[in-house]
Amino acid sequence: MTFYLQALQLSLCLGTMCMGVFISMKIFNIPDITTDGSYTLGAAVTAVLLSQHVPLILVMLASIAAGAIGGMLTGLIHTVLRIEALLAGILVMTGLYSINLVILGRSNIPLIGTSSIFNLITVFSAEISNNLVVGMIFIIALVTLLTFVLRTDFGIAMRATGSSESMVKALGINNNRMKIIGLAMANGLTALSGFLVSQFQGFADFNMGIGIVIVGLGSVLIANALKTWLNIKSIAAQLVLVILGSLIFQLVLALTLASGVDPNLLKLATAVFVLIIVALPRVSSALKKK
């Protein structure tokens, strides 16, 4: 049971990263690999600042800002230098790898006895239940905030940018600026995930972000399948589906581990799982045509 509750908890912590991937991939149609770097960046900033006993709220804001700067860099490289988004993301991610090492100062910083968002409020005495409550409150607040942003005039302009660039420009929207803001938002959310996960697992590690974008991608794809299946249109519901996608993804991974798969093969299992999610609709539609 604890095992699955932990998967649930992790899926909430990774939920903000999944929302980030939702923004870059679904709203802006940009495959953004910066994610791997900005996730670790968020965790690294969190670990270093928490060790220095900086107040939690400042730590959170600092890690979001750090991720946002990473995303902005990718956006600038993509729009100003007109380099493909995929390559721009890989470049920034690679650069961040070194920066994360410099910030951490070593490969791993444990977080023991430091303050933690999960101890901020106590609803249940059992740690795992309390963590879940905090995680849920956090995610609900974030979904509410993002729903609001995406429904404002600015948010409509954001959503339009990924849908029709020619229209957006004809309607007085600076699409380059929009993309930079969008990537900053996406990576700020990703770094926020690093902030949460490092406190949840009790350490920040220089390679904790490797392949994390695939987790986000898989979760968003699951959410997308659910959206089509349930014929959902509202923004709020789509964001909730993203969190649900994250949960399903983590549960599948947890089940995989529980079935006795070597933990070293977890990344392979993740990749295969995402491959299945991506390939299934194509294979089934190809079969239907026959």
Partner: peptide, 21 residues
């Protein structure tokens, strides 16, 4: 398809158009 955003509702498209300037 160029002058409108497919993924947005008619209403959202009109909202942006109403803010063109």
């Amino acid at each position: 398809y160029t002058g409108t955003a497919s993924d947005l509702s008619i209403l959202d498209n009109f909202r942006l158009a109403a803010l063109r300037t």
